[in-house]
């Protein structure tokens, strides 16, 4: 998006409320979706949304404009979401670090049913959409954030690496793992749909 023509950084830094409202209008939807995909809970997502723009408002002075405004907002939002997840985890499971461990067998393909040929309406049912959302929640957080930024929000590898402060190689590795992990999860789900149709 050509945000330069829409949002004036100069005006934002001078405390122009109208301009800040335009920034909110432009990006609140994307920030909310990111948070919702990361947290799977509307109230938590709203917390992240509000904190993101609050922090943006507080720190616009120190924003140097080296990255785009959207990259900057995504970075704040990603950090807020990851912080909330970490806080929840330490409350729920003291000492249990298994949720973020890398298990190689999650990425190695184990299911080889070809479910691509299911009729299109099969992928549009509420149940299938729920399966897609659930599959994202099964991803370790470090992979989930990369997948959400790259494949759902549509950022490039380069933008994703800037948002997360990771090398492009690290982003690519995590993206591959996330995609393979999701493919496994969805394959187990859609395998059943293929079986139902055959019976």
């Amino acid at each position: 998006m050509d945000e330069a023509s829409v949002i004036s950084l100069e005006a934002l830094k001078q405390g122009d409320r109208q301009e800040f409202a335009r920034l909110v209008d432009l990006y609140a939807g994307q920030v909310y979706r990111l948070a919702l995909k990361m947290l799977n809970d509307p109230l938590d997502a709203e917390d992240v949304l509000q904190n993101t723009f609050l922090k943006a408002l507080q720190s616009i002075d120190t924003f140097e404009g080296r990255s785009s405004l959207s990259t900057w907002l995504y970075r704040i939002a990603a950090n807020e979401a990851l912080m909330l997840l970490r806080r929840q985890r330490s409350e729920v499971s003291l000492g249990d670090s298994s949720s973020d461990d890398d298990h190689d067998d999650e990425y190695t393909p184990r299911e080889f049913t070809d479910w691509c040929c299911l009729p299109e309406e099969e992928f549009l049912t509420a149940e299938s959409r729920q399966a897609l959302d659930d599959a994202i929640q099964k991803l370790p957080e470090k992979l989930r954030i990369v997948f959400v930024l790259r494949d759902i929000e549509g950022l490039s590898i380069e933008e994703t690496s800037r948002v997360l402060g990771l090398s492009e190689a690290a982003v690519k590795t995590r993206l591959l793992r996330a995609r393979l992990h999701l493919r496994n999860t969805l394959s187990f789900y859609f395998r059943e749909r293929v079986a139902e149709r055959k019976s």
Binding site: G154, R179, L186
Partner: peptide, 10 residues
């Protein structure tokens, strides 16, 4: 199926 997976999320 990997292609399809990515497509569905897109």
């Amino acid at each position: 199926t990997l292609r399809k997976t990515i497509y569905l999320y897109h």
